[in-house]
Simulated assay, not measured.
Amino acid sequence: MPSQKVLEAKKQVVADLTDRIKNSVAGVIVDYHGISVADDTKLRKELREAGVHYTVIKNTLIKFAADNAGLSGLDDVLNGTTAIATSETDYVAAARILAKYADSHEKFAIKSGYLDGEVISLDKINSLAKLPSREVLLANVLGAFNAPIASFARAVQAIVDKDGEPAEAVEAPAEA
């Protein structure tokens, strides 16, 4: 039977992981079996740069934390070698990075994930992974907003260039 000190340490790990899951917008659970230390280091660096917290934790501790956070449905995937990646702000970063990594490493696999406190299917995780980053999406939206204004400015400039001189201001007739 584990000592009281060990039990307290495990309770603290579960409490910390519960808070991390509750405060995150998205998370992905993976099977990291068979990856090298060098590959793992590269993966962790990429996740860290994207603001994703990645941790290898025992399955039973993830189960307790997930249950405490209200995520049911993860019990089936909590076996073997398991790691969890969570993001507090970016919905797609963890899914995008881990799916790209899983494509290039045959033993590395995505097991499950969650989004806004609900367990999602592997299809949804793969769909999230295909989305561009937040910055790219914002640039596309801003480009769409900017396009009509830029077209109008080019049309006005073409009129000015065609006539050679700026158009004279037309005064409205004075009202009596």
Rank of each mutant, 00 (worst) to 15 (best):
S24G: 04
V77S: 03
Y114E: 02
T41Q: 15
A129D: 07
D123Y: 07
G51A: 08
L98P: 02
H33S: 12
K11W: 04
E8H: 10
V141W: 12
L61Y: 11
G73A: 10
F64V: 07
A94N: 04
T60R: 13
L78M: 03
K42W: 06
K10N: 07
A95F: 08
E118S: 14
A144M: 15
R20E: 15
I29Y: 02
S104Y: 06
A85V: 01
Y114G: 00
A9D: 09
Y91I: 14
N140K: 14
L17V: 06
D39G: 09
L74H: 02
A109G: 13
L128N: 03
N68M: 06
D116T: 05
I35R: 00
I110L: 14
V56D: 07
H53G: 04
N23C: 09
E106Y: 11
V119R: 01
D16R: 00
D31I: 07
N68S: 15
I21R: 00
T89V: 13
L47D: 01
K5Q: 09
T82S: 09
P132S: 11
I84E: 03
V119L: 06
E8K: 13
V56R: 13
A102F: 14
A95C: 11
T55E: 07
E118N: 15
E88D: 15
A38W: 06
V37P: 02
L74D: 05
A85T: 02
A129F: 08
I57M: 04
Y91Q: 11
H105F: 13
L74M: 06
V14G: 02
N68E: 10
V25G: 11
N79E: 09
G70K: 11
D40L: 12
A66D: 00
S133D: 13
T82N: 06
K22Y: 08
Q12I: 09
A69N: 03
S36K: 11
K63D: 06
S104W: 08
L61S: 05
D90R: 12
S87I: 08
S3T: 15
N140G: 14
D75T: 13
F108H: 02
R44I: 06
K58M: 05
I35K: 00
N59P: 00
T81P: 12
L71W: 02
I110G: 00
Y54F: 10
E88A: 12
N68F: 04
K107M: 15
K100P: 10
A83E: 04
V13T: 05
L7C: 08
D16H: 01
G80K: 09
I21M: 06
K58Q: 08
H53A: 10
L47N: 01
D76P: 06
L131D: 08
V56P: 02
L128C: 05
V92R: 03
R48D: 11
N79Y: 13
L74Y: 00
